[in-house]
Amino acid sequence: SNGDASPTATTAAHDHLAQIISKSHLETCQYLREELQEMSCFLQEEVEKFQNKPQEAMWQLCAVKITDAIQYVVEFAKRIDGFMNLCQNDQIVLLKAGSLEVILVRMCRVFDPQNNTVYFDGKFAGPDVFKSLGCDDLIASVFDFAKSMCSLHLEEEEIALFSASVLLSADRSWLRDKLQVERLQQKTESALQHVLQKNHRDDGLFEKLRTKVSALRSLCALHSQKLSAFRAVYPDTVRTLFPPLYKELFAA
């Protein structure tokens, strides 16, 4: 709100924005919750197959999966009101810094907190599936994050608005028009607060979501650190076998 609009007009604007962002989220969320309900967990012999993969092969597989998910996040971004009006430098800055964070937020939709598994490569996988990556601490932190996000029991509309506000972070380095991003982020956050109120959510939920932002940044920093360490040992694997989009975003 610019302060001049009537409460009714502001509510209508929040509802409208929430509706557009929810629609964009659902159109680009890669998996529907219903289709995942049918999926089973990996059997022990399948888990062992992943564990016996060479480290490079498992890293490559995960880079491919992350890249697939990122393409959906780019589509999500393009459908967020106002995103395509930003200059292209700022669109790229926001996606470079925020696409992995959005994937981590979206992960709570494909995570089963009952048995600590996440949907990966056709079935539900526990942390042990990712052992051959050689980054148990990163995997454990990602699973912990997904579990804590699940405990908030967010509705799709809430996940959609939170994802959009994460993507529209105005404090990213190298933005040309910080103010315009800030305005978009504020609008999205107001719509999120409005939706939380409308859904009769606990008063502290918005603040809880805010604290998730620093956790997301730490996870992404840890991912970059692990990628650098991996690249130092296997530069050719990264150069020749990793998806170009993954390299553009994380290994430039």
Binding site: E27, T28, Q30, D68, Q71, Y72, V74, E75, K78, M84, Q88, Q91, I92, L95, K96, P244, L245, E248, L249, A252
Partner: peptide, 20 residues
């Protein structure tokens, strides 16, 4: 632009996720 060629392309394209 050259450094972010693919991201640039994805932003320009009118592809839907189903086409990816």
């Amino acid at each position: 632009k050259e450094k972010h060629k693919i991201l640039h392309q994805l932003l320009q394209n009118s592809t839907s996720p189903g086409d990816l």
